[in-house]
Design a protein around this nucleic acid. Sequence first.
DNA 1: CGCACACTTGAAGTGCCTCAATAAGTGTGG
DNA 2: CCACACTTATTGAGGCACTTCAAGTGTGCG
Lengths: 262, 262
Amino acid sequence: MHETSDPAVEATSAEARTGDALDVHRAHTYLARPGERLTHIFLLIDGWAARYRLLSDGRRQITAVFVPGDFCDLAWRRARTTTQHVIALTPIRALRIDIGEFEHHVECDPGIRAIVENEAHLASETQCEWLVSLGRRTAMERLAHLFCELVERIGRVSGNGSGTCEMPLTQVDLADVTGLTPVHVNRTLQQMRRAGLIELKSKQLRLRDFSRLRKIAFFRSNAEGRRFRNNVFGALRLFQRAPAVPCQPSPAIEEEDRLIIA
Amino acid sequence: MHETSDPAVEATSAEARTGDALDVHRAHTYLARPGERLTHIFLLIDGWAARYRLLSDGRRQITAVFVPGDFCDLAWRRARTTTQHVIALTPIRALRIDIGEFEHHVECDPGIRAIVENEAHLASETQCEWLVSLGRRTAMERLAHLFCELVERIGRVSGNGSGTCEMPLTQVDLADVTGLTPVHVNRTLQQMRRAGLIELKSKQLRLRDFSRLRKIAFFRSNAEGRRFRNNVFGALRLFQRAPAVPCQPSPAIEEEDRLIIA
DNA sequence: CGCACACTTGAAGTGCCTCAATAAGTGTGG
DNA sequence: CCACACTTATTGAGGCACTTCAAGTGTGCG
């Protein structure tokens, strides 16, 4: 598979065919701002991003974290405009898919539709679990749960019951995900280190005792649901190729067609 | 429109045609339990319901509140089984729609598809705002926000800037929505009453100063997004009538079709 | 090498929780 | 219609998880 080993090269050639572009962005660049007209959906290839809501007095709550393989942001497929910020947390590479083409793919390609609907479903499950964290879990439980989730999403669990994954989130980011203050995140992380639960240094997270962390976090694995999840290269390939058979997308639904019954 | 003024009668006749049934349930009956095979989606006609997650030590977090006109639960359209509890908070009437028929309707009827996708989108926006509440808002802000949301969803705002709506949620329910304890909900409600913000008695909520509450809650209206929302009778009618033109639903997507690329 | 950013630590304060008891509703059956 | 059980709402006192403010100390990078 040497000829397809570099997704960037693939993307470049694909761009000529489909008009989709592989974007490169530095950390902290905005992929979306609230109120913008929605023109693209990104398929994240490398790096992390986050969606967040900012209150007018500066309070910030991160409402989703995007890792390689995630679409960003499926939440706005039905919307005219964005309602939240999306920012690159690290340098990223992402396939920028025109929203019209995206809808066309979803309409015409059952494989892509299955992926997209599955992704949306996973995102909604994740979001529910975040609600539980923010509403009912303690600081340590919230962090433990987040770490379990991320290791399941992008990490590796080794035989001896430990797991590892990248962790580019700063303590400020972690605070804005977990609804805590950075100071308290710091103290809680140290408590977890002292308890032998985790190691976290230079953007590398290691769960030293996955099963204990799961219990602490009341973590419910969604590995089954992720079994059929797209992987980043697979999804990339799917979106890069033109649909094998051109199809007639059903006509766009006009506002007048939406149900308004007095 | 006398002949269609009673949805129950309509439903009964529709049942003969479509197999959908209008269910009546008492308060506190389960519409779903985690791990159940998903067979139906409910269209709530009367009464309120809630989805929640229960931790093994008894902590409960309500992750969605359903009011008349809501589908319950769209979150599971892509799932084989339910992952949370859904319970009737009050006596309810609901149109029980077989999941297969539901998917058929969505597939074949662009009007229904528009409704369902719009509903799913609204639900996801609401959920994001709940994340912000639980993560970054104080007790009073959380309650103020919830009240603003509910008045926008089902209440009426009168000219003088006050709004009213039904409020069948007990203080325990409110606590499980807002991630607080019932005791603190009680104290916060009294504080809001004393401040002249709300009246809340015998299941009736009155916002005495909607604009002040909005500011307190950092409430962002989604009235625009709800303009095209189905209303309960409209949606009921749609789901009761058989599709005007029988259509060929695209073949179900088999597991093998889902993308698995190593 | 120095600047910016991430992380760490301490001390003091507070918003919310826990435990506990009582009052006020609400439905149910005799 | 009252007696009873049960849920819901209220109030008090005390404690703790988390916040706030205010220093620091690494640490990576141009």
